[in-house]
Computed example of a mutant assay.
Amino acid sequence: MANHPSPKDRRNTAREQARQIAAAQAKKEKTVKTILYAGIAVVVVAVVAVVGTLVWQSSRPVAPPQAMVSGTVAFAAGEDGIQAVQPSGEEEGADVSDLPTAADSGAAEGAAVVKVYLDFQCPGCKAFEETNGETLSTLAEDGSIVLEYEPVAILDRQSGGNEYSTRSANMASCIADSGQSELLPDVMLELFAQQPGEGQTGMEDEQLLSIAESAGVDVDAEVANEDSATVRDCVTEVAFDRYVESSTQDALNDEGLQGTPHITIDGEPYQGDWSNRETFAADLIRASGQS
């Protein structure tokens, strides 16, 4: 006659089965939690690494382009017209050692430093250059003045969303960084000649590069910027956007810039009438002590 488990034995068996099921479930949940926490940890580490990289990139000094100091390029008398010279002022990391000083270039003793802040999207800057560009080049060529230009970007909102002010100023930086800054006056002249209207979409990269090439720039020349190989790459990658932004903010915050064109003579704002070519030229010559 078969022995049947007693009620007590059945209860003990049921308890043991329930304990085993609970233990298996707990082990499964622990494994899932371990995998989940490990995944979260990996994500957190990745996020921290990305954030850390972005913070480091945003906080590290922006390396200036060659031949520029605080966003400025300078020109003075040379053997064959005007030539690029060392801009006045100082900037950490700036490398202008390959350029002569204005005095070594041929600028007269006491030649006034005439600085023009401009935005390539600015209609007033176009009018200024059309009126006085030739005068400035002539006075720089004969040693009467040292001519400085600082492209800034304060009118990005007026270029149909493609940040033309920043991108055109960036191209000037790229050209300077390739050692071809002596070509910038011709590049600037053509940029203003083809200036997009306010509110219209700014020129695309290939249009900008075409203007540079028409002025004699070798767009396949290498640049010093570590993130770009050539002028073309530098333009398409907008490699100096942070530099343009930084130098523009410095001009607004520290140099008294309120709008463009803004002209200073030996660091002091020009208060005369630049729309009158003869008057403006006479004021520059007077500032250089030649009258």
Rank of each mutant, 00 (worst) to 15 (best):
208 L>T: 09
158 Q>C: 06
192 F>C: 06
189 L>Q: 15
177 D>K: 00
142 D>L: 01
215 A>M: 12
185 P>Y: 05
200 Q>N: 14
158 Q>N: 14
207 Q>T: 13
180 Q>M: 03
172 A>K: 01
181 S>M: 10
140 A>C: 06
209 L>A: 10
178 S>R: 03
161 G>W: 09
212 A>Q: 03
175 I>K: 09
161 G>M: 07
183 L>W: 08
217 V>H: 04
214 S>D: 14
155 L>A: 09
196 P>E: 06
191 L>Q: 13
210 S>C: 03
168 S>P: 04
206 E>N: 12
175 I>M: 12
208 L>D: 07
143 G>S: 10
160 G>N: 04
205 D>W: 00
195 Q>H: 10
152 V>M: 07
216 G>N: 11
170 N>E: 07
213 E>G: 06
192 F>T: 08
162 N>K: 08
190 E>R: 15
172 A>P: 00
166 T>A: 12
192 F>I: 07
167 R>H: 15
166 T>N: 13
213 E>S: 13
176 A>R: 07
190 E>Q: 15
140 A>L: 01
181 S>G: 12
161 G>Q: 10
193 A>P: 00
153 A>H: 08
206 E>P: 00
210 S>K: 13
217 V>R: 05
155 L>S: 08
175 I>Y: 11
214 S>T: 11
166 T>C: 11
187 V>F: 09
167 R>Y: 13
179 G>R: 08
217 V>A: 05
170 N>H: 08
208 L>R: 14
153 A>Y: 08
167 R>T: 12
144 S>Q: 06
206 E>Q: 12
182 E>H: 06
198 E>T: 14
149 Y>L: 14
171 M>H: 07
171 M>Q: 10
175 I>Q: 11
198 E>Y: 09
178 S>C: 06
169 A>S: 14
173 S>M: 08
174 C>H: 09
157 R>V: 10
203 M>R: 15
163 E>Q: 13
147 L>N: 04
168 S>E: 07
147 L>F: 12
216 G>D: 10
217 V>D: 01
206 E>W: 00
219 V>I: 15
163 E>R: 13
197 G>Q: 13
145 I>G: 00
171 M>A: 11
208 L>W: 08
145 I>M: 02
185 P>W: 03
217 V>K: 03
144 S>T: 15
141 E>S: 15
144 S>M: 02
176 A>F: 07
209 L>E: 10
212 A>N: 03
199 G>K: 09
195 Q>W: 09
197 G>H: 09
162 N>I: 05
144 S>A: 13
162 N>Q: 10
169 A>C: 08
